[in-house]
Design a protein around this nucleic acid. Structure first.
Lengths: 95, 95
DNA sequence: ACCATAGGCAAGCGACGGCTTGCCTATCAA
DNA sequence: TTGATAGGCAAGCCGTCGCTTGCCTATGGT
């Protein structure tokens, strides 16, 4: 199944994962689990987070790098440009 | 239920509706139905499109204006700024 | 070799989303 | 007033998503 960035972004947990990686890049699965738990009160299984990371990776929003038995995750905002390319966002939002 | 812009964008039909309104603003429900059918081969019920428009309106991506028995729909890209505000998009995407 | 650590695979369940169907309301024209 | 046009409400079906549970693989330390 093809995962679009729109599907990937349509989940608050995945958005929090992106926030986490944006603030501290290169975290492992277990690190993301613990930071999500302590900073956002998320009580999710490791597998749940793993699946979320899989979706984000398929969408190209997260890049990974294996070293030994660890897998490091990096936030890649580049695919988000598809949104602004499709619907240009006005500079200012003054009502 | 609260409809976020992320949920609203996570549907190709809704994205096509936004494209349609972006290219020709102020269309009615029936106009959107026919243009989607002719230009994208979408064979959906009027109610389906109506529900999509409802979701887009709840998310603030579509503004409406009633005149008589017609309801005109306008694309409002302003809420999309939430995305770039949360995750700044790099200017260029040269690899 | 042994065991703990870091992660993956797959099945199953509950809930929600998209779409249809059927019927109803409101506005305009004759 | 009658009928046609533009749209709304609500129930129901089916597929998909998020999450858990259980088990398996692989790397590193001692």
């Amino acid at each position: 199944m093809v995962v679009t960035i729109f599907r990937a972004l349509d989940d608050e947990t995945r958005r929090l994962v992106l926030d986490e990686l944006a603030s501290r890049d290169g975290q492992t699965l277990f690190e993301i689990c613990s930071t999500l738990a302590t900073r956002h009160g998320l009580s999710l299984t490791r597998q749940a987070i793993s699946q979320h990371l899989g979706v984000l990776e398929e969408a190209g929003l997260v890049m990974t790098e294996r070293r030994g038995r660890s897998k490091f995750h990096y936030f890649n905002p580049a695919p988000l440009a598809e949104i602004t390319r499709r619907w240009p966002i006005p500079e200012r939002t003054d009502p």
